[in-house]
Simulated scan of single mutants.
Amino acid sequence: MSQEQCPHRNDVQSSEKPRLYKVGIYGWRKRCLYFFVLLLMILILVNLALTIWILKVMNFTIDGMGNLRITENGLKLEGDSEFLQPLYAKEIQSRPGSPLLLQSSRNITINVLDGKNRMTSQLVAGSNGVQAHGKMFEVKSTTGKLLFSADDQEVVVGAEKLRVLGAEGAVFSNSVETPHVRAEPFKELRLESPTRSLFMEAPKGVQILAEAGDIQASCRSELRLESKDGEITLDAKKIKLPRLPEGKASPMATRQTVYEVCLCPSGKLFLSQAGTGSTCHISNNVCL
């Protein structure tokens, strides 16, 4: 079909106007978008104000925060601080001239670990006392002199004088080895075993000396002075044996106040009235 046969087609196309399509958000969608943008701006302003307030309250500066300051040597903390989690530090020290206070509502525990995280030493300060766990414990003076040490083998007191201030003195359940036992000036020295025996032994002798006082030895059953290879010396101006038993006098002997000291084979001493000769064999009824 030719073009002349359809004249109405061109008339239709010429009569139609071009259509325009609008691009964007309109109506309630546009109002919601503006509302969310405004809400976001308000939140940003509130967040910025809170951040500035926190910086002001916590005293944030270039050097640190609040009482915490960052220095070349580490962290410097002024005032009281509370740590709710573990604190790891190489060194903790107070300001020059100020004490270092560690305070806890329960206890303070200090652990020392080796390379395999095994505990080698521990110090616990609690309400029941202070406990130290380790292989050895030492106390030294400012000059480095050993004052006290303790381990599994022995306890060493390195001070020049060991003073026990208790009213009952020092109690030892086993033997005590010492080269010298001396009381304080103008004080008495007492070695006492209330329920058992008291032994003093030395390979080269035992010397008991009181330069300005008396020596008193008393016991309930026996007092024995024994020397295996040497002798026993009682060096004094007067030696008194006031309670020696008296042997049975001979019927022919006269009553007198002169006696001789006799010795039984068992070592027991007794008195016998003196005569022109020894009368110990006459009065040896004490030895029976």
Results as ranks from 00 to 15, higher is better:
E184S: 13
S197T: 14
F35C: 06
S266P: 01
D152W: 12
T254A: 11
H281P: 00
I208H: 01
V37W: 07
Q3Y: 14
R196K: 12
G27H: 10
C219M: 10
F199C: 07
Q13W: 05
I108N: 02
S149N: 02
D235G: 03
G230L: 04
G66E: 05
R255S: 09
V286A: 01
S197W: 11
I62F: 05
K161S: 10
G74E: 03
I92S: 04
A167E: 12
I25E: 04
G247W: 00
N128F: 06
T178S: 06
S278M: 12
A132C: 11
L225P: 01
V176F: 08
L38Y: 04
M252G: 09
A212P: 00
K135R: 15
A170M: 14
V124I: 11
S15G: 03
G158I: 01
F83G: 00
S121K: 04
Y26M: 13
I44R: 06
N73L: 11
M136P: 01
E82A: 05
G205W: 04
L244Q: 00
G169R: 02
D80C: 12
A212T: 15
Q3S: 09
I215H: 10
T233K: 12
D80Q: 14
D11C: 02
S141K: 12
M65I: 15
N285T: 14
N174A: 09
D63L: 12
R19D: 03
S81Y: 05
F60S: 04
E154A: 10
I62H: 07
M65H: 07
F199R: 07
T276H: 07
E177Y: 04
R29Q: 14
C262S: 01
D151R: 02
L33H: 05
S193I: 06
K90Q: 15
Q103Y: 15
G97I: 03
C287R: 02
E16N: 11
V171S: 11
K116I: 10
I282S: 01
N107Q: 14
D63Y: 15
F83T: 00
H180P: 00
M136V: 13
A183G: 08
D114H: 07
P185C: 03
E246I: 14
V258S: 07
C264D: 01
V171Y: 11
